[in-house]
Design a protein around this nucleic acid. Structure first.
Lengths: 116, 116
DNA sequence: CATTAATGTTTACAGACGTAGTCGATTACG
DNA sequence: CGTAATCGACTACGTCTGTAAACATTAATG
């Protein structure tokens, strides 16, 4: 079922894109905007708009760390979180994923569609 | 028995877009290509490439029917399935969703990205 | 008519996701 | 020093998704 015939850890983990989910993406956006941030600070950025609690942000951050989409740097008793992937990479991957799924890889029809 | 005691939302003009999942999307593509199709025929289209069993296709079809993304037409003992939504609508919705999420609604940056 | 083949419906189950509470450790504060 | 505030880790739990088997019904076939 895996679309990518690529295996994991052996030197340079060239992971494609760790499948960021919707909620996780919001957290990534906060970190792309400014980083490193504490969980608290991330929450200040996203909890309001999405109506989340700090606990939710903490969970999302750990999941992102597990996916290696975010890295941590200890700062006293807490952690500072930073994105481990470039936003442009993420954007590129997601865009291409859509173009592949919807237009068989050809971008022109997408343009047409959005241009209407 | 299932008399379908549902449908509380009394008469709304149209639903946005029933959130087609990845696997479901493959089935939709088959139906957009040619329809109506029997479950068997859909399977012939997608089971091979995705390594699915007929049972899986049946499940996906029922879920799509439940979401009202697909409609059925009885044909003797079986059903013929047809898409209930235009592919262009789906494509438009999905494209816009991506542009919103990644570029705050502005399509130009997407073009730039894909045109790299 | 009794089996068998085909077909939709129900049920299943693991993993991901959204959302959050609880717990143990640590730090800060009085 | 004792207690409160903080923080990450662990746990929870309902829903969605992917994948499919079991089941019931019915049509076909011998």
């Amino acid at each position: 079922m895996s679309a990518t015939p690529e295996d994991e850890m052996s030197g340079q983990p060239e992971r494609a894109s760790p499948e960021i989910s919707g909620a996780e993406h919001a957290v990534m956006e906060a970190l792309w905007q400014r980083s490193p941030l504490t969980a608290q600070e991330v929450c200040e950025e996203v909890c309001g708009p999405r109506g989340w609690s700090l606990a939710t942000v903490k969970t999302l951050l750990s999941r992102l760390v597990a996916k290696q989409a975010v890295e941590t740097e200890p700062d006293g008793k807490r952690f500072l979180y930073s994105p481990r992937m470039e936003r442009s990479d993420y954007v590129g991957t997601e865009s291409r994923r859509l173009v592949d799924r919807l237009f068989g890889g050809r971008a022109a029809p997408l343009f047409a569609h959005l241009a209407q």
